[in-house]
């Protein structure tokens, strides 16, 4: 299985869908979308080059596993940045900004701490640490809660449109 989702053509008006444990990159005017539950979506955008990426992250730490790089924060983020630089011949340093979405928790369990809830927090911490090390500023966070989120990155503007079931749409 390819590590990234379909990247979409440069300059295409396509909408690229990202499945769980995958990422995708694209240039304007393409849009990139995904549906989140408890996973964390990491959105990167370069306003100058008008391009971006979205990774649908499941777990914080790959612990050396190489089979599914899109699943883990510590492999997906560097791989997504690497693909942006290779595919679009840009240098990501100093240009990319990030937005974080997701990490909701629907099912709570009684008794001991919910490992899924903890993973949501661990994902958030891992992503923030990795982005900090890469000096990529986080411009917005929409994390936690108990609902799924459908999000779409507009690579032209960097705006992330979020839909939640039974609620008003909003933008980050």
């Amino acid at each position: 299985m390819p590590a990234s989702g379909s990247s979409g053509a440069s300059g295409s008006s396509a909408i690229v869908s990202v499945a769980i444990g995958q990422w995708a990159v694209a240039t304007a005017p393409a849009k990139i979308r995904t549906l989140l539950g408890s996973c964390v979506g990491v959105i990167l955008h370069d306003r100058v080059a008008r391009l971006g990426g979205l990774a649908h992250i499941v777990l914080p730490d790959s612990r050396g596993e190489t089979d599914h790089p899109g699943k883990f924060a510590d492999t997906a983020i560097p791989a997504m940045i690497g693909e942006i630089e290779r595919k679009f011949q840009v240098k990501a340093n100093g240009r990319l900004v990030a937005k974080l979405v997701g990490g909701a928790s629907m099912f709570t369990t009684s008794g001991n701490a919910n490992p899924v809830l903890n993973i949501g927090l661990m994902n958030q911490e891992a992503v923030e640490r990795i982005l900090g090390e890469l000096r990529i500023p986080i411009m917005a966070r929409d994390l936690g809660g108990a609902n799924g989120r459908h999000l779409t990155l507009d690579t032209t503007s960097g705006i992330v449109a979020v839909r939640i079931p039974g609620g008003a749409d909003y933008e980050l």
Partner: peptide
């Protein structure tokens, strides 16, 4: 009772297995 996106619902329910299994 819930109303949710089908994909999000499944992600919530399957996450516990996904912590360990591909």
């Amino acid at each position: 009772f819930l109303r949710e996106f089908a994909g999000s619902l499944l992600e919530f329910a399957l996450m516990e297995q996904a912590l360990e299994l591909d």
